[in-house]
Simulated scan of single mutants.
Amino acid sequence: MQHAIGVDIGGTKVAIAIVDEAGNILTESVIPTDLSIPAIKMVGKINNEIEQVIKRTGIPMEQLIGIGIGAPGPLDSKNGIITSPPNLSGWIDVPITQIVEQHFSIPVSLENDANAAAMAERLIGAAQENDNFAYITVSTGIGAGIVAEGKLLRGLKGNAGDIGHTVVDPSFGKCTCGQYGCLEWIASGTAIARQGSAIIGKDISTKDVFNLYFNGNKEIIRLIEKVFRVLGVACVSVINTFDTEKIVIGGGVSKVGDPLFQSIQAYVSEFALNETGRQTEIVPAKLEQSSGVIGAAALCFAR
């Protein structure tokens, strides 16, 4: 059986795992993302941890088909460069693929983390039977991985699917990107906490907002209903644009469960443009905790 290494780089931690072609994790390690040191040194720490993970499994290097890396965008996946992610401060134009390939002498692939998660859901998750689907993460930010006719849509630099900065409703005000009314500014976990805090009059978390929602706070209920509707609008736009058969939703906000999925499904059933679009399934992700490393490894199997 073939094996690959998956590396999931985040703003606070890096997960590294050896994964077989069935999507099983043989061993996994997590190290903190140290943003106080130069990015090149942090990549060196990642290389060292990859070595330790390989040693623990005892798998010979010749049995590893490659290393897949999932990282937040913007990035240049075709040239293997992490360009300027907001939550990896100081990581500017880091040629991570080149550095890792030189260290291990095996092929290395780089993709946006949402794309990697989409690949994981297709390999062993909620979209195993689907050639046309979108994986949408609703967490600190909002992003998507799009699979069409069985192929991941990457775009020019590998940043396709950045739906978080699609303008949905300018009345919600100015997004951090400079536009008005971006999806991420309205419906991300960060946005929910910000708007909930404004309603309550003190800083509260996204989890606190949803607790108030379930406890019947009327103002919070109105806020969350708007958020669900906006996410429904986003899903309809994805369905109309890419003719999907399924949308898989992950990320921290998806943990709210049935109220979110039922609301989006109802919106899609009413407003998607054509009959097949209105029948698009809206389902939760299956691989929340491990989708990053499994998806990163899956990039090697797909290649």
Rank of each mutant, 00 (worst) to 15 (best):
F271S: 12
F172I: 09
E111P: 05
A272S: 04
I25C: 00
F228M: 10
K286D: 01
Y213L: 13
K218P: 10
N48I: 07
G292E: 11
D208L: 15
A302P: 14
Q179R: 08
Q98Y: 11
A127Q: 09
Q289E: 02
A39W: 13
K174S: 14
D243K: 06
E21P: 06
I200S: 11
Q179C: 14
L88C: 01
D162E: 11
A22H: 05
A116T: 09
E225Y: 09
N47M: 07
S197A: 14
R56G: 15
R194I: 14
I16E: 01
D258S: 12
L273V: 02
I200N: 15
E225V: 13
G125R: 09
L26Y: 03
D169M: 14
A4D: 01
E184L: 13
A187D: 11
T12A: 12
A266N: 07
Q2I: 14
G295K: 09
D162W: 08
K174W: 13
A272H: 08
E111T: 10
I54V: 13
I106Q: 08
T12K: 04
G252C: 02
L260F: 04
P107E: 09
V238R: 06
N240S: 04
T33F: 00
F261M: 12
E51Y: 07
C177H: 07
A302V: 05
E288P: 09
V53W: 01
K218V: 13
L223T: 08
T137D: 13
N112P: 03
G250C: 04
A302N: 15
T176K: 11
N217A: 08
D162N: 06
D208Q: 09
A298C: 06
G232K: 09
Y135H: 07
V30N: 03
L299S: 02
L299M: 03
A298N: 00
A193M: 15
F172N: 06
T280V: 11
G158W: 03
G125V: 00
F301V: 09
R303P: 07
G73I: 14
E101H: 01
E288C: 13
L223R: 12
E219D: 05
I199R: 11
E225F: 05
T12N: 05
Q2M: 10
E129C: 15
I224P: 08
A198T: 05
V53T: 01
A117F: 07
I142H: 10
V7K: 00
